[in-house]
């Protein structure tokens, strides 16, 4: 009984998470405070802890670790506001990546409305497209077009195709458009486009 009670105390007291021991005492206290505050408002704690641990591994100064964790907590809150309270931690993390890449909260909300959950992959693809050089608005438009019907595997393949085109020298915006089939609508200066089987 005592052991059970002790385990419950540890589970409910994140400051006892052994991972925190990799932080110096001052940084640990400040990170724990941020994580606790985030948890109170329903944000996931693991991404915040991971961000602190990343700083510890990279020998970052305590101030910088605290700033990084605080910034991530703010971004997670923004993502949660955009994606709704039912968003999973993975969706929130992917949402943060998309926001930091340049997507707007409105885009995230639209994506949530268009696609059945989970939308983790769609958000990740959006962030990756922007990281590959595709303008944020073009990337958002592309993912929103695909979102209602494309499977996760289709989205990943779309991202790969665009990245492959970019690596081969295509302008990122054009690569996205081509892969969406937009330019195949007939940006042909002769105006008359061939229809299927047109005599």
């Amino acid at each position: 009984m005592i052991l059970t009670a002790l385990l419950l105390v540890i589970a409910q007291n994140p400051a006892q998470d052994p991972r925190y021991e990799r932080l110096d005492p001052d940084t640990r206290a400040r990170v724990v405070a941020i994580v606790d505050s985030a948890r109170v408002v329903g944000l996931p704690s693991d991404p915040l802890i991971h961000r602190a641990l990343e700083g510890a591994m990279k020998n970052a100064a305590g101030e910088r670790i605290v700033a990084a964790v605080r910034r991530l907590a703010g971004d997670l809150g923004t993502a949660r506001d955009a994606l709704g309270s039912n968003a999973t931690p993975a969706e929130l993390e992917a949402g943060v990546a998309a926001l930091r890449a340049g997507a707007t909260p409105a885009t995230l909300t639209r994506l949530r409305d268009l696609r059945k959950p989970p939308i983790t992959m769609a958000l990740a693809v959006l962030a990756d497209l922007v990281a590959s050089g595709v303008p944020a608005d073009s990337a958002a438009a592309a993912v929103l077009v695909l979102a209602p019907t494309a499977r996760d595997a289709d989205l990943v393949e779309f991202r790969r195709a665009v990245e492959r085109d970019i690596a081969l020298g295509a302008p990122p915006d054009a690569a996205t458009s081509v892969r969406l089939g937009a330019t195949s609508m007939g940006l042909d200066a002769t105006a008359r486009n061939a229809r299927p089987g047109k005599p």
Binding site: R64, A68, A131
Partner: peptide, 24 residues
């Protein structure tokens, strides 16, 4: 610490670059 090829690189919170990848 570097970013392995085959991942998407982002500027991290610690002034470096971090690779990201997707597990579908």
């Amino acid at each position: 610490w570097t970013v392995p090829g085959g991942t998407t690189r982002h500027v991290g919170d610690y002034g470096d670059e971090v690779g990201t990848f997707i597990v579908p």
